[in-house]
Design a binder for these strands. Sequence first.
DNA 1: TTAGGGTTAG
Length: 630
Amino acid sequence: MLKMMIRTTTAATSSSCYCWNSRGMNCLHSNSSFLVFVNNYFAFFHSQPSKPIKSTRTQLEQPKRDLPKITNVEDAFNVFDRMLQMRPLPSVVRFNKFLGQVAKLKHYSAVISFYNQMVVSRIGHDVCILTILINCYCHLNQMGFSLSVLGKFFKLGLEPNVFTFTTLINGFLLENRVAEAAGIFNKMIAGGNCQPNVVTYGTLVKGFCMKGNNSAAIQLLRKMEEGACKPDLVVYSTIIDSLCKDTLVDDALNFFSEMMCKGISPDVITYNSLLNGVCKLGEWKEAARLLNDMVGKNIFPDVCTFSVLVDTFCKEGMAGEAEGVVEMMIERDIEPDRVTYNSLMDGYCLRGEMSKAGKVFKLMLSKGSMVDVVCCNTLINGYCKHKMMDEAMMLLREMTCKGLVPDIVTYNTLVDSCCKVGKLGDAQQLFSEMQACGQLPDVQTYAILLDGLCKNQQISTAIQLFKEMEGKKLDADIVIYTILIEGLCIAEKIESAKELFCSLSSRGLQPNVRTYTIMINGLCIGGLTSEAEKLLIEMEEKGCSPNGWTYNVIIRGFINNNETVTVTGLIQQMVEKGFSADAWTTELIVDLLVKDKVDPALLPLMQKENYELNLPQLKLNRSSDHPNKH
DNA sequence: TTAGGGTTAG
């Protein structure tokens, strides 16, 4: 079905020339576009032996296997039952191998249940089995149980090894507890018996990267260089990936060169990180170079490489090209996975082609267990963005029927859209429902609902909700306070808005350009134009430069308060700073000029900005400017 | 037999 869909669309688009430069960067000419490169690349790829990676792996892995292959949890239960019935019972090592396989399939709860049955059946423990158990609790975010297993080591007289400690470090990192992870690492270094190895270092490097602390990660890599445990491909790739995610692609490429100079060869994962980094920046030439480089090194793209390309094409609004990539994957017998299809679906959503997005979703449904919460969220987000609330709500109900648990993203998306279409009751109902289902609202959920309430003139309910949020020990950030200040201004409670604004510094919060602009707008609405003007100066002094929206707001404020004397100076300031009046402000200014209420010296300024001084024309041009656009 | 890196959604 998808192939048919793909063929229909690509036929219409593949002959066109494309400019890949929606972000204004490194555009290739249409005749040498990245798309042409990708096509050439795949032509090369087609000439290569079929399925190079898959066949090699199978040949290598087959003879090693001494347990029946377990592909799902049902297999695991059957195999375990058979093992328990064997006499004599299989060795602990065999049970370990079995549990290791099940853990690799991410059936962590099943592993714990098997372990408990092993205890009942008096099958012995060893360091390995307890480490597997710790790993399972870690992945289930139950560090408390992981630590109690560690206690078991001492009770049984077993000594945790480097695997055990590395697993614990990883567990803390999974819970974002980097300091505790680093604590174990430091104890290992200080202890002497069990020194960290390259995997331990790699785990901690990942932890620092997760926290966005690239410099700590790099420092650790440098420390490794000084010692006996040298950084390997994984350590370098982790740092390269993190730098790419922070858009520091040049730094990432420097590490890439450094790594190769040390004789460490990159693999498909390293290239995928770099490719993703350059694609996100729109650096197509670099992307093409990297793909060429991979080919030159006989590194074959995998499903993730293709998914990055699909996602990039989709984000650029080139769903047709993304379909082409999916088709190439299918032709190459590389099965697109849920990430690939999800990106494609998102691409259709972005273009408003919701029926095509729905078709991809159905295709995924037909492939068994491919649909997960993320896929549902993507489609729900698409429906919401196009105000198809009924379809979005229907999908939420379908998710539950299919046993998928809607997460915080699902609810935040839906609550936000209900607020935006004015269905506040539905938004509040979803807010209650999510809590009843055990999904605790986060700061973003509160921000969404508070914004909805404030924009719909329900300030007292908003304040009540804000208090509820404080009671839950959720830290309100500047976004929350800005929403409340705006709500108070909308409710014409300017004094309360001012009070809240003034209290920000004592709460350790710094107003941003949005906060200042909203407060300036509120002051103008309340007729307090001189205070608004003071605030405009103050924000500049405090290092928060006003933007175009700020100037438009204050200029309109002065005009609406019939204080036209100051307007000329403000317009001059705005133009000097490279901002311009939006259609709404322009209309007000032109009106003043027509009525001869402002300095005619404004005329050249307005002409400088190329405004047509013609009212009907202005009305036609009037855009629906929104604060968020600035 | 046990531990670390890459692609998707608000």
